[in-house]
Deep mutational scan, measured.
Amino acid sequence: VTVDIKGMEYHFDNPEEAKKFAERMAKELGGELKVENGTLKVE
């Protein structure tokens, strides 16, 4: 699973970990979490 945090890509084997990480980063950065082509994106 790929997580894109404002252009920086992180790769996770575990989808649950990827989702938790993306949600935490969205909250910390005040960004919006989206799913695009199987990639979790925070913008």
Rank of each mutant, 00 (worst) to 15 (best):
K34N: 07
K34W: 10
E28D: 07
E23K: 07
I5V: 11
G30A: 07
K41W: 09
M8T: 13
G30D: 08
V1F: 14
N37A: 07
F12I: 01
A26F: 05
M8C: 13
D4V: 15
V3F: 02
G38Y: 02
P15R: 07
F21A: 01
E16W: 11
E17L: 06
M25H: 03
E36T: 10
D4G: 07
V3K: 01
T39S: 09
P15S: 09
V42D: 03
F21P: 00
K20T: 09
F21H: 00
V42R: 02
G7M: 02
G7E: 01
E9N: 09
M8P: 00
L33T: 05
E9Q: 14
E32N: 13
L33H: 04
E28C: 15
G7V: 02
N37K: 07
G30T: 04
A26L: 09
E16S: 08
M8Y: 12
E32R: 13
T2W: 12
E28I: 13
K34D: 04
T2P: 02
R24I: 08
G30Q: 08
M25K: 07
K27A: 12
A22I: 08
A18T: 00
K6R: 13
E17F: 04
K19P: 00
K34A: 06
G7P: 02
L29D: 03
V35G: 06
G7F: 03
E17R: 04
N37I: 05
T2M: 10
V35F: 14
I5C: 12
V35Y: 14
V35C: 15
T39Y: 11
P15T: 08
D4I: 15
V3L: 05
E17I: 05
E43R: 12
G30Y: 06
H11F: 12
E32W: 15
E32C: 14
H11Q: 07
E36D: 10
R24F: 13
R24Q: 12
E17H: 06
F21M: 01
L40Y: 13
H11G: 02
A22W: 08
N37E: 08
V42P: 04
H11T: 10
K41S: 07
K6V: 10
K27F: 14
P15E: 12
E9L: 15
R24E: 11
L29P: 02
K20Q: 12
E23W: 07
E43I: 15
V42Y: 03
L40F: 11
E9T: 14
G7A: 01
L40V: 07
L33C: 13
G38N: 09
M25C: 13
N14S: 12
E9F: 14
P15I: 14
T39F: 11
E23G: 01
T39P: 04
V42K: 02
R24L: 11
L29F: 08
E17Q: 08
V3T: 01
V35M: 12
A26Q: 06
G31M: 13
K34L: 10
A26W: 08
V42T: 04
H11V: 10
A26N: 04
F21I: 00
G38F: 02
G7K: 01
E36A: 10
